[in-house]
């Protein structure tokens, strides 16, 4: 295990844990999509980037930005809506941009692919041997603009790496229930070089990204990396489906009552009705299963286990990351009543 990969994963996780706490305190408004579970993918890919490489992100944008080295205090200040945040408090967490890092994000699902294609085009014209990376999800690959980019990037032979984080979900729907074919096969059909990795295994991601990015820098055709990983905190913080899955008798009571009421009213084809209710039940079971943080499913735990051979280095990294996040939080909360202790 390369210690820096563990450090970057830990930074990404600790940042998100801090964000979740700020959100619960009501200091962050609106939807807050955490990238918990995606740390190995972010660390394994983004550590290959150099100055002049572009980074196009979606609504779950924190882990790649943290790994890319965007100042944490300015990111946190943006989430808190402060004038010295990345977007002067006017953008919010789905819309984090850092021109210095050529990094942009979007709350419109699928938009990172064309954005990445454009950053790659600019790189190919202006910055030799520089590339762009677009992070997206399996659900987003059903957007027209995403599928069109699969064609465009090949047609223009763009130095673009698309990293598809496959968490099996399209918001609150199972991807498989609304998708035909498989993401990697789609890209391959358009002529992309493709690879598939276990997105919980940071070394596997790192190696695959190294190969693909290395080829891109030499002018090879666009590359598609499919990385499977869990979604540990649901679609966003406060995800009602996750709450229902965890506590059906309290958080699911109202909906279950409505469903039961509706089921007794005169309506459509019985088989289709029963099938729909069964599918909903299955969704809840899957939501709960996907969000198990302990054990083998958590990529951070896997990385930590891999560091066990070098406990001194591991402990030092953990202390340093803890201190880094704590001091970033303290600086970000300097003008918030109660500060970090509230």
């Amino acid at each position: 295990m390369h210690p820096d990969l563990y450090r970057q994963m830990l930074r990404a996780r600790a940042y998100e844990v801090a964000v979740a706490d700020l959100w619960r305190r009501g200091l962050i408004s609106g939807e807050m999509h955490l990238g918990t579970g995606e740390e190995a993918v972010a660390a394994g890919v983004v550590t290959h980037l150099r100055d002049g490489d572009g980074l196009a992100l979606a609504h779950r944008c924190s882990p790649p930005l943290v790994v890319r080295g965007v100042p944490l205090v300015r990111m946190l200040r943006e989430l808190l809506g402060k004038p010295d945040g990345l977007g002067h408090g006017r953008a919010g967490h789905m819309h984090l941009f850092s021109r210095e890092h050529l990094a942009g994000s979007s709350g419109v699902v699928g938009a990172s692919l064309p954005m990445g294609a454009g950053l790659a085009l600019a790189a190919s014209r202006l910055r030799p041997r520089r590339i762009a990376v677009a992070f997206t999800g399996d659900g987003a690959l059903n957007q027209g603009m995403a599928l069109e980019t699969l064609n465009l990037a090949v047609a223009w032979n763009l130095p673009l790496l698309v990293v598809c984080i496959d968490n099996r979900w399209a918001i609150a729907t199972r991807s498989a229930d609304v998708s035909g074919g498989e993401p990697g096969e789609r890209a391959a059909a358009f002529g992309w070089q493709t690879a598939r990795v276990d997105g919980r295994d940071v070394l596997a991601v790192h190696a695959a990204a190294q190969t693909l990015i290395g080829r891109l820098r030499k002018g090879r055709k666009p590359a598609f990396l499919l990385a499977t990983c869990p979604r540990l905190d649901g679609h966003f913080l406060g995800d009602p489906m996750l709450r229902m899955a965890r506590q059906p008798l309290t958080d699911g009571r109202e909906l279950l009552g409505e469903v039961a009421g509706a089921a007794t009213r005169k309506g459509g084809d019985l088989l289709r009705r029963v099938g729909g209710v069964l599918r909903m039940t299955r969704l809840l079971v899957q939501a709960r299963a996907g969000a198990e943080r302990d054990g083998r499913g958590d990529p951070l735990q896997q990385a930590r286990d891999a560091m066990a051979r070098d406990p001194e280095v591991r402990d030092r990294i953990e202390h340093e990351v803890h201190d880094e996040i704590a001091s970033a939080l303290e600086a970000a909360l300097i003008d918030t009543p109660g500060g970090v202790d509230a």
Partner: peptide, 20 residues
Amino acid sequence: APLVARFGTGRVLAAPISEA
């Protein structure tokens, strides 16, 4: 979900993230 329970999946259709 209540509409699924009443009218079934033939009339309540889950869409992929594909507005166009």
